[in-house]
Amino acid sequence: MHIFRSRLAATLVAVLPLCAPAMAQDEEQHSSLTIGVGGAAIPSYEGSDDYRVMPIVQARGKVHDFAFWTRGTTLYVDAIPDPTGTGVNFELGPVVNVRLDRTSRKGIKDDAVRLLGKRDVAVEVGGFVGIGKTGVITSDYDNLSARVAVTKDVAGAHGSTVITPTIEYFTPLSMTTFVGLSASADYVGKKYGRYYFDITPQESLASGLDVYDRAGRGSGFKRMSVNLTAGKSLSGDLRKGWAVFGLAGYARVLGKYGDSPIVADAGSRNQWVGAIGVGYTF
């Protein structure tokens, strides 16, 4: 179980696209739940050029118009109830992420990075704020939204702050099909770079990778990513029943983080992800 969780945390973008069916809900339905399960091909650690196939579970729903959703190992809860119909929707609420990157040596394929040793589990707690609009371009049900999440590790792992701005657009093409596009970035504090990307002299001796200390000298943008998602209802209506989903994504490790030997020598700045799965909307 520990190995499975570490593989899940190797990327934040290996998720099933569960947003669009919720956007297409009947205006009179104030509570709903969508559960998705599937498989994803993801890097074995952030910055790796080796890939693993792993199972994933995602969820999205709302209770009396209060929405919640998951993204990888992150849970968002919107404390502002969603309005019905078209118009502007404001988002504000707590967010929690469990980061398990490199917490198990068995989940890392590269020998040198594995010899750097394990990292502790990070529990990142904070909040997010956002704004969205339903009924933008193609219909009364397409949605454009932007949000910013700010979290801090409270478990004593990297002990730093992570800021994640995200822009998403989803549109149903019919009652049975939707597509979506999202873009996001991660801005991290210096402790994050020091913990995951710097290499001490002792770690260099153990792994054979060069000593590196630039990532922990200050904060900066660590990664940007773009994801394309699509879904097809198997029941004839995206608002209920079974559906199949797919995701294709690209991310790039930026700047001094991409210059770290765990990326530049043992891995790659270019990160790819693909996922397929099925979901059921109650």
Rank of each mutant, 00 (worst) to 15 (best):
Y141I: 00
F170I: 05
V154C: 03
G159S: 13
D140A: 14
V125I: 15
D101E: 09
R99Y: 06
I163G: 01
R99Q: 11
A146K: 00
S139E: 04
G130P: 07
R114A: 12
R114H: 00
K109N: 10
Y169Q: 01
L115R: 15
V98T: 10
G132D: 03
R102H: 08
P165K: 02
N143C: 07
G132F: 00
K118V: 13
S160F: 01
Y141N: 13
D110S: 06
N143M: 11
S145Q: 12
G159C: 01
R114F: 01
I108E: 07
R119E: 12
V121L: 14
S160G: 14
R147I: 03
K133M: 11
D142T: 07
V150F: 02
G135E: 04
R119H: 11
A157N: 08
L115D: 12
I163D: 03
S145P: 04
A146N: 01
G126E: 05
V148I: 15
T103A: 05
L144N: 09
K118Q: 15
G117V: 09
V113S: 05
G135I: 10
D120N: 15
G159D: 14
K118R: 15
R105V: 11
S104K: 12
L144M: 09
V148D: 05
D110L: 04
D111N: 04
V98R: 15
L100H: 07
R105L: 02
G159L: 01
L144E: 10
S104T: 12
G107Y: 02
D101W: 10
T161H: 07
V148P: 03
K109D: 12
A155M: 08
V125G: 06
R147F: 06
S139C: 09
V162H: 05
L100T: 15
A149I: 03
L100W: 10
V121N: 11
V148M: 04
D110T: 00
T134F: 00
D153V: 08
D140N: 11
N143I: 02
G117H: 07
L100A: 13
N143G: 00
L116H: 01
E168M: 10
R99D: 14
G159P: 01
G156I: 09
A157W: 12
G126P: 07
P165R: 01
S145K: 12
N143W: 09
D120E: 15
R102S: 08
S104N: 12
G107V: 06
T103V: 12
S145A: 10
K152N: 13
K109T: 11
K152V: 12
E124H: 08
A122I: 06
E168T: 14
L116E: 06
E168L: 08
K133A: 13
D153F: 10
L144Y: 09
V121P: 01
Y141W: 08
